[in-house]
Write a protein that binds this DNA or RNA. Structure first.
Ligand SMILES: O=c1ccn([C@H]2C[C@H](O)[C@@H](COP(=O)(O)OP(=O)(O)OP(=O)(O)O)O2)c(=O)[nH]1
Ligand SMILES: [Mg+2]
Length: 1058
DNA sequence: ACTCAGATTTG
DNA sequence: CAAATC
DNA sequence: GAGT
């Protein structure tokens, strides 16, 4: 099994590389240019090198193929300082306690003063103030993997505590960079919240809890679960925050808002332009500066330097952004509202061990559920949960039906209504579908194939409904003669089955195979388009091609391309290069392809797509640029009789044989013992053991040695990672999981102690499958990975740039790309009519800041500013910094704060967040809001925003997340928030396999209530347990969760998997 | 052929 | 409901 | 993409 068919390998590679790559790009170019009437200019710049030219200066990858947030590839997590933390902490604590004690800012917490946090249109505000002009000319913060981390020394860290906000440089720049652009009419829904500013309370010494600073923050020794959540209160350096508030708070014009006549102090100066308020602000600053100057520490200086270095000179003053969100006024899904919440009758509850498979329809505990639980625990009678859809209440008899049947049904029904006003025959279940005003799918005969080809699932029905509603002619079954479009999100195999075909190539060219996104893309369109616009609105089919092989389908004339044959040429290409691997970059060898030419007809495949000159056919409208290449390809292919890669093949074979020995020796012992249930995929590290074979076990169970420097397979890892980053930028499920998989292989490789020498050896590693092993082999033999070049197309590069914007993911990035955007500047200009959401605007403005990671010390500094403020609101609060910080990372991508409060005194932290946010804004720490919790008063809430060190004009914007959870959930919440993400997924997966389910609220076991009754048969015949509930098994401490799951305890810094 | 974690907020 | 993010 |  170790051997593989090299031909097939290259054939596949070839297909993948040639087909979509060049084609998409060209098409896109052509299209976009057409749309914009830009003529032909585009194609000239097609390939690599030229491609770059089209990306303006703000193109991060110019040069390095950095990734915005290169996850795995980025600085691997090393806990540089972690070891000393407790020590350092202890020391600093002491110092802190003695030196700075008095001035903790404390506000009397008086209920009366408790005003809700009321942000308003953050996006608009930011925009109005700054405009989206590029602020920092500096190259985007995207950094190549190599230099991501600016390692902090442990020494530095201990000093951080003495850090003091420097008031020396409080000159707040009051100038605005640009005249306020009219606030984008981003219509936010406003959460109905009364917004009233809190009259500043004067700082008061914290007389309360002598919770002296200690350390929970860092050295958290889980063992003592007792005080697990004690607040790491750190005495705060003298910082007079108070004055700021009033001035700084520039109430963004609450334009429409005023109608509300909300007595909002902020409303006072409601000029959208904040200049006024800003000016006002400046005078205030001086007053408070003095205090702060008190002992600037060396640490502080360092931080300053660091920041200066990063130097994002944002002139923007601490604009107050306040956003109001209209809270969905408890719009209860009528149906569910009435349905009484299922009352759990304990007596009828039985525990069952759910197999992973059964978890499908088990309702996970939702916020709503938890609310109930909380109440049980007498935490707080959860407010009437907005009924997050209790599955129980209604029961729309799904009524089994095949997709075809359903299609026929709704199609018939709709037609009837549309055509004859005849009395409805009122088919039993026939949904009342009314065609929408603007049926953009009119005239299109669509065959839809959902995930389930046998039964029309809810989702399938909904989608079919949509198709019909929008005028589409839904085909019950595929008929190549009539069908004009095939819409599917399924995989090739299932689709082919339904179509009754053997190969995708059997589908006529004129029938595009597109994903659901194609239909959806025009859904939200204005309903006034002209017929002509419809098609454009729908988007070119190829943009939504379901399979890259068929990317051309439906797009005008096209020249048949002999896929299969190209394999050879490619073969020729890579193998020979073995001797002279490096050297040639794609374009470079354009002219000098000789290298490859040793072989019979090896037209370097890369060249094919690359060379604009060779295929100038572009001009001809919709023709595929590829045609000429194909011809060549075919020719060459035929010419090439000898397979140069034969050697590879043989070699692999041999190796596999020889290596089977050691490989097999491993398995025996392992397999037996591991055989039990796991089937786990998670491969794992056998740290440095002589037995290299793929081991089994749960990745969450064993800490991975994360030393970087020693990896013997670094080159391989680097290349695979590069490839992964490229895939990560692509939309679609396929690439999503591919990325997932690459991640696993890479991790496995990182933990592999020896240099891999062969295909077979690679293959033996868990997580490294056929394809990856082949790639590894290619790297081993040629020193490079051709595939990378092909995946590195302009669209990927550009969209990856876009994805660096907070709030922009694969989908939007590609949409924008399709709209013709190529640079960040294009986005600012709104090229192609692209619209950025409020968050995205902020993300764009602070592109560099957000993509930068902060030194650990800065995270602490900011947190230390926040802590006292929080405690001033409620001394019993427990707030802790989590995420990468808790794991001991030297640099943090953001600050993750967990907030909760013990309930022993009958109180909760409800409402604290609101006040905290207000105060943090006032203090100039919070600068921008990105996401506000549904209900600020909920015990469970998530806030996301941007913060910065106040009063330091050089400080950069940092991402900050605040997570509030009920006290009872603290354990699971800490587990979750500590991460890392890979670890979380791994442990959650193990939980599943063991019949549990784990989330930030707790570890749940499945339970079925009176199994005898509530069972429902589904169309497929299985039984779905509708009343299956998940009961809380543990959530208060991390330890118990680890224990129950049989995961050996691991300190935060040991939970690093990525 | 199925699974790959599970949740919240936004538009 | 899909996308983005944690 | 990989493991089952
Ligand atoms: O997909 C994800 C992302 C994050 N998390 C958890 C683990 C993580 O540690 C925590 C905080 O997320 P964040 O994105 O801040 O990651 P981090 O671990 O703190 O790293 P970084 O330094 O980039 O912030 O949330 C998940 O469970 N799943
Ligand atoms: Mg973080």
């Amino acid at each position: 099994m170790a051997s593989f068919d090299i031909k097939t390998y290259y054939a596949e590679q070839d297909e993948r590389m040639n087909v979509p790559d060049e084609t998409v790009e060209d098409i896109l170019k052509r299209v976009s240019s057409l749309r914009r009437g830009k003529g032909t200019s585009a194609h000239g710049s097609s390939r690599k090198s030229p491609a770059r030219s089209s990306i303006e200066t703000d193109d991060p990858q110019s040069g390095s193929a950095g990734t915005p947030t290169g996850r795995p590839g980025a600085s691997s997590e090393r806990n540089v300082i972690f070891m000393n933390e407790s020590v350092a902490l202890g020391r600093t604590m002491k110092r802190r306690g003695s030196v700075l004690e008095s001035d903790v800012v404390v506000a009397k917490r008086r209920k009366s003063v408790d005003h809700d946090y009321s942000p308003q249109n953050a996006g608009d505000h930011a925009l109005s103030g700054l405009s989206m002009e590029p602020r920092a000319a500096a190259p985007p913060g995207l950094v190549s993997d190599a230099k991501l981390a600016s390692p902090e020394r442990s020494a530095e860290i201990e000093d951080i505590d003495s850090f003091t906000v420097d008031m020396a440089c409080p000159e707040m720049t009051t100038k605005r960079e640009t005249p306020p652009r009219k606030a984008a009419p981003s219509s936010h829904k406003h959460k109905q919240i009364k917004s009233i500013s809190v009259p500043q309370q004067s700082p008061v010494a914290a007389d309360h809890s002598p919770i002296s600073s200690f350390s929970r923050v860092i050295a958290d020794s889980p063992r003592k679960s007792t005080r697990e959540n004690l607040v790491p209160v750190s005495r705060q350096p003298p910082l007079n925050l108070r004055p700021i508030r009033e001035r700084l708070l520039t109430r963004p014009s609450s334009k429409k808002k005023e109608t509300k006549a909300e007595p909002d102090p902020y409303e006072a100066h409601d000029s959208p332009i904040e200049d006024a308020s800003l000016d006002a602000a400046s005078p205030v600053t001086p007053s408070k500066k003095k205090r702060l100057e008190a002992e600037p520490s060396k640490m502080f200086l360092e931080i300053k330097q660091l920041m200066a270095k990063h130097g994002s000179n944002n002139k923007k003053q601490a604009d107050k952004i306040v956003k109001r969100k209209a809270k969905p006024v408890l719009q209860q899904p009528s149906g569910t509202t009435t349905a009484a919440h299922p009352v759990v009758d304990d007596s009828s509850i039985i525990y069952i061990s759910s197999s992973p498979s059964s978890r499908a329809n088990s309702l996970g505990p939702t916020k709503t559920d938890m609310a109930k639980q909380e109440s049980n625990v007498k935490e707080k009678p959860a407010k009437s949960a907005p009924a997050k859809r209790m599955p129980k209440g209604k029961k729309e008899k799904p009524q089994p039906m095949t997709p075809a049947e359903y299609a026929r049904m709704i199609q018939a029904d709709t037609d009837e209504k549309a055509n004859v006003a005849g009395s409805s025959t009122a088919p039993p279940v026939a949904p009342k579908l009314k065609r929408v005003k603007f049926p953009y799918l009119t005239g299109k005969h669509i065959f839809y194939a959902g995930g389930d080809m046998r039964h029309a699932s809810e989702a399938t029905r909904r989608k079919m409904d949509i198709i019909v509603k929008n005028g589409g002619d839904l085909m019950p079954e595929y008929d190549p003669a009539v069908t004009t479009h095939i819409v599917t999100d399924a995989h090739r195999q299932p689709l082919l089955r339904v179509l009754g075909l053997k190969s995708l190539t059997q589908i006529p060219h004129n029938i595009p195979t597109v994903k659901w996104t194609w239909v959806r893309s025009a859904l939200a369109l204005p309903n006034n388009l002209s017929q002509g616009e419809v098609d454009t609105a729908l988007g070119e089919p190829f943009m939504h091609a379901a399979y890259h092989e068929r990317i051309d389908a439906g797009c005008a004339p096209r020249i048949e391309r002999p896929f299969k044959f190209k394999s050879k040429e490619r073969t020729a290409e890579s193998s020979p290069s073995a001797g002279t691997p490096g050297a040639d970059s794609e374009h470079s060898h354009q002219p000098a392809e000789p290298v490859a030419d040793n072989q019979p007809g090896p037209s370097t495949p890369p060249e094919a797509p690359l060379s604009p000159p060779t295929s100038p056919l572009r001009p001809i409208g919709p023709s595929r640029g590829r045609c000429s290449t194909n011809d060549n390809v075919a020719k060459e292919a035929s010419a090439d009789a000898h397979d140069p890669l034969a050697e590879f093949y043989h070699e692999a074979k041999l190796q596999s044989q020889t290596e089977d020995r050691w490989k097999t020796m491993g398995p025996d012992g392992e397999q037996s013992d591991a055989s039990d249930s796991e089937d786990e995929d998670e491969g794992f590290v056998n740290s440095g053991e002589p037995v290299p074979r793929g081991k089994r076990g749960w990745t969450c169970d064993t800490k991975e040695p994360q030393q970087l420097g020693d990896c013997p397979n670094e080159d391989i890892i680097t290349k695979l990672n590069e490839l992964m980053q490229l895939h990560k930028a692509k939309p679609g499920e396929e690439d999503r999981w591919r990325t997932f998989s690459y991640g696993k292989s890479i991790r496995a490789l990182k933990n592999y102690p020896r240099r891999i020498r062969s295909f077979a050896e690679a293959r033996s590693i868990r997580g490294v499958g056929l394809k990856t092993a082949q790639k590894i082999q290619e790297i081993l033999q040629t020193g490079e990975l051709q595939r990378i070049k092909y995946e590195k197309s302009e669209d990927v590069l550009v969209t990856r740039l876009f994805q660096g914007i907070y709030g922009v993911g694969q989908a939007t990035a590609f949409q924008w790309y399709a709209a013709g955007c190529r640079t960040l500047q294009d986005l600012r200009r709104g090229t192609g009519g692209v619209k950025l959401s409020a968050v995205q605007k902020i993300g764009l403005i602070f592109y560099d800041d957000i993509n930068d990671r902060m030194p650990r010390a800065e995270a602490k500094a900011i947190f230390d500013l926040i802590t006292p403020i929080a405690l001033s609101i409620d001394p019993k609060l427990s707030i802790e910094i989590m995420g990468s910080y808790r794991r001991g990372k030297a640099d943090c991508g953001d600050i993750d704060i967990l907030m909760t409060r013990p309930t022993d005194d009958g109180k909760t932290h409800s409402g604290v967040l609101s006040r905290l946010l207000n105060q943090l804004h006032d203090a100039g720490i919070l600068v921008e809001d990105l996401a506000i919790p549904d209900d600020l008063h909920d015990l469970e809430a998530t806030y996301r925003g941007l913060c910065r060190l106040p009063h330091v004009d050089t400080s950069r914007r940092r991402r900050i997340d605040i997570l509030c959870v009920p006290w009872t959930c603290r354990g699971s919440a800490r587990l979750y928030y500590t991460g890392d993400d890979i670890f979380n997924r791994a442990i959650r997966m193990k939980a599943n396999v063991l019949g549990y389910s784990l989330n930030q609220r707790g570890l749940f076991g499945s339970v079925v209530r009176n199994p005898s009754d509530r069972r429902v048969k589904t169309n497929s015949g299985e039984e779905y347990t509708m009343w299956q509930l998940r009961v809380l098994v543990a959530s208060e401490t991390e330890e118990e969760i680890f224990k129950i799951l049989g995961v050996p305890w691991q300190e935060p810094h040991e939970r690093v998997r990525g």
